[in-house]
Amino acid sequence: MNFDELTSFLEKRVQNSLPGDFAHQKMKPKLPSGAPLKMTHATPPRKGGVLILLYEDDGMVRFPLIERPSYEGIHSGQMALPGGRYEQEDLDQYHTALRESEEEIGINRHDIEIIGSLSEFFVAASNYMVLPVIGKIEKKPSFIPEPREVADIVTPEFGQLIDDARLKEKEITVRNGFKMICPYYDLEDRVVWGATAMMLSELVEIMKEYPTR
């Protein structure tokens, strides 16, 4: 997959109508009974931003995912895109995604060129409205994980994401023994599920339009 052709396609494509919830629903966890998960919150969602950072490495297009450390929280140990919550210092959610990614994985935000964004996504588990920002960087980054927020960084090849063989499903047990049936992407032998998988699913849907030779 050619890096320049891919990033050029995405930059143009995200300016048009996006598949949004149609794509998100394909990766949404459900109860073992098959019933959909329902969560309500008493307060409005906070804003956040995450980064899908594309770069070329030895002829392959890759992007970083982080593994969250184990902690007493909703997203303990999960695979995620780098990013976090909007702060008052941020100009917008694009800035949030860049700032948080710099803090979490040690990339210089000024080296990143923004391509665009996917649809805003509501993370029901933590009550956040997140903007998935797509960016590119012209050189292979040297990642430096922030140990309080990042247990590990993996860099799957972009082609894995759009490989149907990588789309799987399993039962996952979360806090308090709560079980869910979760579609997931098997990337670098990691289980990428939940909100991250749902956001990436929109990118996968868009890539169905990518011209092939």
Rank of each mutant, 00 (worst) to 15 (best):
M1K: 10
M1L: 09
T7C: 07
L10N: 03
L10P: 10
E11R: 14
R13Y: 00
R13C: 03
R13S: 06
N16I: 04
G20M: 02
M27S: 10
A35V: 00
P36L: 04
P36A: 08
K38A: 02
K38D: 02
T40H: 12
T43G: 04
P45G: 05
R46G: 12
K47F: 09
G48N: 09
G48C: 11
G49D: 09
G49K: 07
V50Y: 03
I52E: 10
I52L: 14
L53Q: 12
L54F: 15
Y55T: 04
E56L: 08
D58E: 13
V61Y: 13
P64Q: 08
L65H: 07
E67D: 04
R68H: 13
I74M: 10
I74D: 12
H75S: 14
S76Q: 09
M79E: 06
M79F: 12
M79N: 08
M79I: 15
L81V: 03
P82M: 06
G83H: 04
G83K: 03
G84L: 09
G84P: 03
E87W: 02
Q88N: 14
E89T: 08
D90N: 15
L91H: 09
D92W: 08
D92F: 03
T96H: 02
A97S: 07
L98M: 01
L98E: 04
R99G: 04
E102S: 11
E103I: 14
G106T: 13
I112Q: 01
I112Y: 00
E113L: 10
E113T: 06
I114N: 00
L118C: 08
E120Q: 14
F121K: 06
A125L: 11
A125N: 12
Y128K: 03
L131E: 04
V133Q: 00
G135P: 01
K136Q: 07
K136M: 02
E138H: 12
S142I: 12
I144Q: 14
I144N: 12
E146C: 07
E146W: 07
P147D: 05
E149P: 10
V150P: 09
V150Q: 06
I153K: 12
I153V: 10
V154D: 02
T155K: 04
P156R: 02
E157Y: 05
Q160W: 00
I162V: 15
D164P: 13
D164Q: 04
L167Q: 05
L167Y: 07
K168D: 03
E169L: 06
E169M: 12
K170Q: 14
E171R: 12
R175F: 15
G177P: 13
F178H: 11
I181V: 13
Y184S: 05
Y185D: 01
D186N: 05
D186L: 05
E188V: 01
R190H: 11
R190K: 14
V191I: 13
W193N: 05
A195Y: 01
T196P: 03
L200E: 02
L200V: 00
E202C: 03
E202H: 08
L203Y: 07
V204I: 15
E205D: 13
E205R: 11
E205P: 02
